[in-house]
Amino acid sequence: MQQQGTDGTGEPLVAMRNVGLRYGTGPEVLRDLDLELAEGSFHFLTGRSGAGKSSLLSLLHLSRRPSRGLMRVFGHDMQDMPARDVPVLRRRIGVVFQDFRLLDHLSAQENVALPLKVANTMDAERIDEIVRELIDWVGLGQQAQARPPTLSGGEKQRVAIARAVISSPRLLLADEPTGNVDQEMGERLMRLFVKLNSLGTTIVIATHDLSLPGQYGYPLLHLEDGRLTHESGGTA
């Protein structure tokens, strides 16, 4: 894997030029995307249902390759990236899903520990230590051993967020993170994202709730019919 100016060079964390995405032989669901995500920035990604938010997130969390165009992530060209090198990049990206995607047969603590376990870079004791600390930080110290089916929606979302940030990702993607929780929990989760951003994590939150961008004032990426518009300035 090439190592090109990912640190201290001013290069955006993610850069897309004229990117398109199609599934199989179908029509393009994303068209002519030009996008730059600067290190430490915070963006809201909005758009109607079917506008392509999930498709764009799937490009950003490296689940798909663009069908055309140029895409660089952490300084690496995705077009030439061998499949065996992709997992290392994915470990630098945290993802929070609307449906949480927790493993029901594992405890909250075990779910949170997964990214560190698969990275296999530290021993089990150190992992336990970090997980306990993070579980306390998201306010789930008492539910560490609980299995997801016994947790509320907000608790599940916090487990999912803890799992997404445990390996200190440089980029955090969240798909409708407040969609399945009440307003109070939604606000608590947003405060959590703001705090993570203040610690240096680049954050993209996909939401259909247009009041959120207005509340927080971060730049807005708006998708319409697979095309991206940058509706406000800011750090993007």
């Binding site: 689940s63 065996r84 997992p87 994915r90 493993l103 296999n120």
Partner: peptide, 11 residues
């Protein structure tokens, strides 16, 4: 999910 959080195919 495992692949998404960085699990290599070998893992």
């Amino acid at each position: 999910l495992l692949r998404l959080i960085g699990a290599a195919d070998g893992y």
